[in-house]
Every structure is written in structure tokens, then in C-alpha cells.
Design a protein around this nucleic acid. Structure first.
Length: 263
DNA sequence: AGATTCGGGAAACGGT
DNA sequence: AACCGTTTCCCGAATC
């Protein structure tokens, strides 16, 4: 039974491998390679991938997702010197937000900080939305330590925070469900309910952020792919507590109707 | 084949 | 004191 699922996963992985092998786009930057390979694939594949980008519990204002977004990412990510960039005054906007520190206030949670950083232009070289609508985000390998260090400073830890340690905390979320791991390098996904709360809290809608590429770019209409109808989208997030890792291949090959009973 | 990334046990820690 | 949300350390496995 479980082996069938593994076979399907393996098949899918193989398919991805073949596609990647046939892709002319090769980059030394492993960070962008994955996405740019996706970018050069058949539309059907891209459609399949966008199918996974649904939003389970609420109507997504943008149920379309342009994977071509990745092509607009900076190919050269600048080095940043750590230390000076991440004091709280880095973002004037967030510095002005109510800091939850005073008496009776809860401590800032890691997922809150990450959401905050996602909207901080100064953190754009460390963390970015992969697909904001469904709360998928990823760290940029080159500068992920900067974000971690900022997080550590914000918390006032004794030792400097590292990505490793921060990721450990992130892994704890897979139990409680605030954030789950997506089966892709350095990428995670907010719980939709959490995301909604955070968005309303910070006054952001789920529309494009200042650093996000508009979905409908003139002249690139053919690169915009529509998600499949949402159908019954409760199945995967409903099981986050059972399946801590969100497997892209599994979801892509899974019939939503049987998925619930399959767990 | 070496470097990253991932995953989780276990214990310590600071705040409420 | 007890509990929560990490933080710190560590090690093995998986993936790049």
C-alpha cells in the first residue's frame, strides 16, 4: 500500500529529473536553478504545479500564480555584511508596528517575525514569498544567516542565532501546525488560518507586496497559469498534524477525493 | 565525495 | 512551580 505511494512519488521525481535534464537553462546558482527549470517546462507541467498552489480555507484573491515570477528574481544576490542591517530600525514600517513586549504582551513569535520579514524590503535578500496567496515562502541560501541573526538579535539571545537553530524552531511548528515544511529546498508554508490572521494584523491584504512581481504583467499573459478549481481543498492541510512534510509529488499525483481516506 | 539541508531527541532557558 | 516557546547542541539521514 505504502509502496504504491512511494512508487508514484518516485515516478514523479523521475519525471521532474527528465524535465530538468532536458532543460537548457543551467545555473550554478542552485537557488534559482530549480525554479528556472520549472519555468522552462511544458505548460501542462506548470499547470500541474500550480494546481498545488491552492488555498485551502479561504477564497484566494489571487487564485492565479505566475511561476514566471522566478525569472524576475535577482540572479545575483548581493552579499550582505551581517550585524548592522538587522537592528530593529532596519524597517521603519515594522519598527512602528506595535511591539509586543510591554507588560501583558506576548513575546514575538518566530512565525510572526518571519511574516514581518516577508514584508520587509531589507530582508528581500534573505526571505521571499514563493506564492503569497497560499503562504508559501522560502529562504535564500546565500543570506539566510542574516535573517536568522536578526531574529536572534530581536529576541536578545545570549548567543547568535543561526539558520540551523532557527530552522529547528521552524521544525517544531510542523507539530503544532503554524508552519509546515514544503518539499522543496528551504521552503515552508504558513497555515492558512495563521496567514490570514497575520495579514489582517499587519494591515496587509494578500495582494502583491511591494517586492512581489505583479501577476499580470503586460506581454507575459501566456505565462500566467490558472490554478485548478479549488474543489475540496481541505485534504492536505487537514492532515498537517499527521504528515509533517508537505510532499509536492504526493499532492500532484493524489486524487483529492481519495486523499482523505488515504491517510 | 563533500557540502547543504533536513529531521528530531534532549536538555537548558527566559518569560508569564 | 509549571508550562510554553523556543534555543542550543548534537547526530544521522537525505539531498544537492
Amino acid at each position: 500500500m505504502g509502496s504504491l505511494e512511494n512508487d508514484i512519488n518516485q515516478d514523479f521525481q523521475d519525471a521532474i529529473d527528465v524535465i530538468q535534464r532536458h532543460s537548457q537553462i543551467r545555473h550554478h546558482d542552485t537557488e534559482n536553478k530549480y525554479y528556472e527549470n520549472l519555468d522552462s517546462q511544458q505548460s501542462s507541467v506548470r499547470h500541474a504545479i500550480s494546481y498545488y498552489q491552492f488555498t485551502p480555507h479561504f477564497e484566494p484573491p489571487g487564485s492565479t500564480y505566475d511561476w514566471n515570477e522566478s525569472s524576475s528574481w535577482p540572479h545575483v544576490i548581493p552579499d550582505v555584511s551581517l550585524g548592522s542591517l538587522c537592528s530593529t530600525e532596519t524597517s521603519a514600517f515594522y519598527a512602528s508596528l506595535p511591539q509586543r513586549h510591554g507588560k501583558g504582551r506576548k513575546k514575538l513569535r518566530l512565525y510572526e517575525y518571519l511574516h514581518e520579514a516577508l514584508h520587509d524590503d531589507n530582508m528581500g535578500d534573505s526571505i521571499q514569498w514563493t506564492d503569497r496567496g497560499s503562504g508559501v515562502f522560502h529562504f535564500i541560501s546565500k543570506n539566510k544567516e542574516k535573517l536568522a541573526e536578526c531574529w536572534g538579535q530581536r529576541k536578545g539571545n545570549r548567543k547568535t542565532m543561526t539558520y540551523q537553530k532557527m530552522a529547528r524552531a521552524l521544525r517544531n511548528y510542523s507539530r503544532t501546525g503554524e508552519i509546515v515544511k514544503v518539499r522543496r529546498k528551504l521552503t515552508y508554508q504558513f497555515n492558512p488560518a495563521i496567514l490570514q490572521r497575520l495579514s489582517s494584523l499587519s494591515g496587509y491584504s494578500s495582494g502583491p507586496s511591494s517586492r512581489e512581481i505583479p501577476l499580470h504583467q503586460p506581454g507575459s499573459a501566456e505565462h500566467v497559469y490558472y490554478s485548478s478549481p479549488l474543489q475540496d481543498c481541505h485534504y492536505w492541510y487537514g492532515q498537517y498534524s499527521y504528515q509533517t512534510e508537505y510532499d509536492l509529488a504526493t499532492v500532484l499525483t493524489m486524487d483529492p477525493k481519495t486523499a482523505v481516506s488515504a491517510q
